[in-house]
Amino acid sequence: MSNNWRISSFNGALLAAYFIPVWTIIAFSIMVSPIHGLYERPSVSIALYASDYLHLSKIATVRLAWLLALARITVVAFFAVFLAMTAFSPLRKKSGGSDEALAVALCLGSVLSFASMMMASRVGEIEALRMHAAELLMLLGTAIVMLFETSPKRALEAPVAEAGAPTGELSLQQP
Rank of each mutant, 00 (worst) to 15 (best):
S57P: 04
S29W: 01
T24Q: 02
M119T: 04
W66F: 15
A101T: 12
S89C: 00
M118V: 03
L14Q: 15
E127Y: 10
V123H: 04
G96L: 04
F10H: 13
T61N: 12
I59V: 13
D99S: 15
A80L: 13
K93S: 11
F28C: 09
F88C: 09
S113E: 05
S29A: 08
S45Q: 05
H36E: 12
L108F: 13
L56I: 03
W23L: 09
S43I: 00
A103R: 14
S45E: 07
V75W: 00
M31C: 07
S116N: 14
Y18Q: 13
S95G: 09
G37P: 02
I59W: 06
A13L: 15
L15M: 14
R92G: 09
A17S: 15
M118N: 00
A101D: 06
G97Y: 07
R41G: 02
S95L: 05
L83Y: 05
K58A: 02
A71Q: 08
D99R: 15
L68W: 03
Y18C: 08
I46H: 10
H55S: 12
S29E: 08
R63Y: 05
K94V: 13
F114R: 04
F114I: 03
L54I: 00
L83T: 13
S98Y: 01
Y18H: 12
S33F: 01
H55V: 07
G97C: 12
I126E: 05
A50T: 04
L112A: 11
D99L: 11
V75Q: 11
Y39F: 14
Y53F: 15
I20K: 09
A115W: 00
A101L: 07
H55I: 05
A17R: 09
G37A: 01
A50E: 06
R122S: 06
Y18N: 09
A47F: 01
M85F: 12
F79Q: 09
V76I: 14
T61F: 04
V32L: 06
W23N: 10
T61C: 05
G37S: 04
F10G: 11
I73M: 15
S9M: 14
T86W: 11
